[in-house]
């Protein structure tokens, strides 16, 4: 597991109060962790703070699964 994935696993586990081992790439935040729409916004904002990047509203709206979040974080960190 790379650094960004590890860091995001921590963040997601803390945010949705689930054990880190339950956070998998295919995890769907709403279906699997009971997130509501505002929780997705809160997650994106936490991601921004952690990585020190700006994520636009249109990019934020597309985050539904852990894989989405990891992909977005990697794109943003590389930019």
């Amino acid at each position: 597991m790379d650094d960004i994935t590890r860091e995001l696993t921590d963040l997601v586990a803390t945010k949705f109060k689930v054990p880190p081992e339950r956070v998998r790439l295919e995890s769907d935040f709403i279906a699997d962790f009971g997130a509501d729409s505002l929780a997705l916004v809160e997650l994106v904002m936490a991601l921004e703070e952690r990585l020190g990047v700006r994520i636009e509203d249109e990019e934020a709206e597309r985050v539904r699964t852990f894989a989405d979040a990891v992909a977005l974080a990697k794109t943003k960190s590389a930019a």
Binding site: S37, L38, L40, V41, V44, M45, D57, A60, E61
Partner: peptide, 11 residues
């Protein structure tokens, strides 16, 4: 637009 306003409000 609830999600956008929520985020803008916090920030």
């Amino acid at each position: 637009h609830g999600a956008e306003v929520f985020r803008a409000a916090v920030e």
